[in-house]
């Protein structure tokens, strides 16, 4: 039969058993908290994201440029010392899918934009593969879409890429068929274009202008001045 004394001893024993674990928890929590606070004060994590005012998420991989596929890191292209009001090269980052019908028609608009703005705006087209039927991209298809070459596979695989509207796109096409670029940028659909300042900070995101009627044209005119 368990007496009060044995019960008390059992509780004391359990406490003693728990002591090391609880003490260890507090000790490690204290050290970890100190390390976190110290690290955060020394270098807080950068505010990276697709919203206006945030540093644009990096885009790193291979781009098709001047006839070849080459390594590209977006953050290497930005001028981190740029100040508001200074001259500098802005970025128009377009997200598209070679099989998306809206991107097919948007290609002509992109050609017009490039003709008007390329002196102050660097164009980058990020090619995604939307996870819906008949949207199977490939590098060959990206090249054909960009350069308007004969390739039966664009527009949900129904049309020849050579027939797409607009001119040949003489700017970088980034292969984002795999990877996390779409989720990093919270892309709601394609085509989707974001204007980025020379220092890499997002200046205009269409998702934040759903209700004010502000378009990419007026944003570039207002912010870049072209």
């Amino acid at each position: 039969m368990m007496t009060e004394a044995t019960t008390r001893r059992l509780i004391v024993d359990e406490d003693a058993n728990a002591d090391g674990r609880v003490l260890a928890f507090f000790a490690v929590s204290a050290v970890l908290s100190l390390v976190f606070v110290f690290s955060y004060v020394l270098a807080p994590p950068p505010d990276i994201g697709p919203s206006e005012g945030q540093l644009a998420p990096n885009i790193s991989g291979q781009v098709h440029n001047s006839g070849i596929w080459e390594d590209f890191t977006f953050h290497d292209s930005i001028d981190r010392d740029w100040q508001d009001g200074q001259s500098g090269q802005w970025f128009l980052i377009q997200f598209m899918d070679t099989d998306c019908p809206y991107c097919w028609t948007d290609a002509a608009e992109m050609s017009e934009h490039h003709a008007s703005w390329s002196s102050q705006v660097t164009f980058i087209t990020v090619v995604l593969e939307l996870q819906i039927p008949d949207h199977d991209g490939s590098r060959a298809e990206i090249e054909a879409f960009k350069l308007k070459q004969s390739y039966q596979g664009c527009y949900k695989g129904e049309r020849n890429c050579a027939d797409r509207p607009g001119e040949v796109h003489n700017w970088r096409y980034f292969d984002a068929l795999t990877g996390s670029t779409a989720s990093d940028w919270s892309i709601p659909g394609t085509p989707f274009s974001v204007l980025v300042q020379p220092d890499g900070v997002v200046a205009w995101n269409p998702l934040q202008h759903k209700n004010d009627g502000d378009s990419i044209d007026s944003a570039v005119q207002r912010l870049v001045g072209v």
Binding site: V35, F36, F38, S39, L42, A43, P44, P45, P46, I48, L55, N58, H75, I78, R80
Partner: peptide, 14 residues
């Protein structure tokens, strides 16, 4: 922790 500090600096300022 130190590599995290460096990572944050490189990501934020290059």
């Amino acid at each position: 922790a130190w590599t995290w500090v460096i990572h944050n600096q490189l990501s934020g300022t290059g």
